[in-house]
Simulated assay, not measured.
Amino acid sequence: MNHTYSLHKITDKNDCPFSEAEYSRFKFGENAYAEKFADELFEGFIAQHKDLILSYNDIVILPSPYHAIPTASNFLCHYFKLRVNHFLYQNGRKALSESKIYRNQTYTTDYGNLDYAERVRLIGNDTYYIDRNYIGNKLCLLLDDIKITGSHEHIVKKILAQYDVQGTFMFLYYAELQNKDIHPNIENYYNYFYVKDVYSLMEVMASRSFGFNTRIVKYILKLDENDFSLLLSSMKKKMRKQLFALAVSNNYHTIDEYKTNLDHINNSLTNKITSTYGYQFTERPA
């Protein structure tokens, strides 16, 4: 049985029901907004579905599919889980279990500009794995930040059917595009509303709540020479180490489009280098 809940309904492209600037900063790793959005999502969701939550003893929460680098929605899921667990504690119930849908991504295209058919075709080439025995016959909360065309939900439902997973599945979203006359590329309008260039990106990365996610890692690895060198020189060694490790964990070193910048990050981890881009890098403290 499938259910869907979304907090915000997008019906007018000129009247966004949430802060576009906050959403953009969230999508690029400013996780104070992940916590804020999770609190809002919990309050709206529990007001409508309290009885459903309390009718199940075994509940599993799953963020949107990813391989090794978490998505922005994974951080949203983390804070949402904390709120639901506190609610379950107050009602004398077991805490949520957590699982994930493993995903091996095969593309570098930003699908925020694509329509439904293009998105399904693109993400349908990825490979997915889910632990059917772990989540079967339970209430599964499948959480994502936004539903634009429903392509990801379509893929997840296809995976559940492929693995013959039985249970109750609740698809939760912070926001949902309900006016189908609005082109799906409004997603990229939201994604890049605040983060429009390397300077706004550096501001987000300077936040105390910043954390790398899939979007920002790919964005950095695709930066042009000048923007990349500026960003890299602003990053402490500890952050560059983390960025490099995450990129390799997702096998981005095997993708030609990412390899040049990733190699320069690796080279920058020595004390002082002159890169093939021509700039000299002096180590900042970790």
Rank of each mutant, 00 (worst) to 15 (best):
I148A: 08
T149Q: 12
G150H: 04
G150C: 05
S151T: 01
S151P: 05
H154A: 12
V156M: 08
V156L: 03
I159Q: 05
I159P: 02
I159D: 03
A161T: 09
A161M: 11
Q162I: 10
V165A: 14
Q166N: 14
G167D: 02
G167M: 03
T168A: 03
T168H: 13
F169E: 05
M170I: 02
L172D: 01
Y173P: 01
Y173Q: 04
A175K: 07
E176V: 01
E176F: 02
Q178Y: 01
Q178N: 13
Q178W: 07
N179M: 07
N179Q: 07
N179D: 15
K180I: 10
K180C: 00
I182E: 08
P184K: 04
P184M: 10
P184Y: 06
I186N: 04
I186M: 10
E187F: 09
N188S: 13
N188I: 01
N188C: 06
N188H: 03
N188P: 01
Y189H: 09
Y190H: 11
Y192H: 14
Y194I: 12
Y194H: 15
V195S: 06
D197F: 08
V198Y: 07
V198Q: 05
Y199H: 14
S200R: 12
S200C: 00
S200T: 15
L201E: 06
E203H: 12
E203M: 05
M205L: 10
S207H: 12
R208Y: 11
F212W: 13
F212M: 10
F212Y: 15
N213F: 07
I216W: 06
I216L: 07
I216M: 08
I216S: 06
V217T: 05
K218V: 01
K218E: 13
Y219C: 03
K222Y: 07
K222H: 13
L223V: 09
D224V: 07
E225M: 14
E225A: 12
E225Q: 15
E225V: 14
N226K: 15
N226Q: 14
F228H: 08
S229L: 04
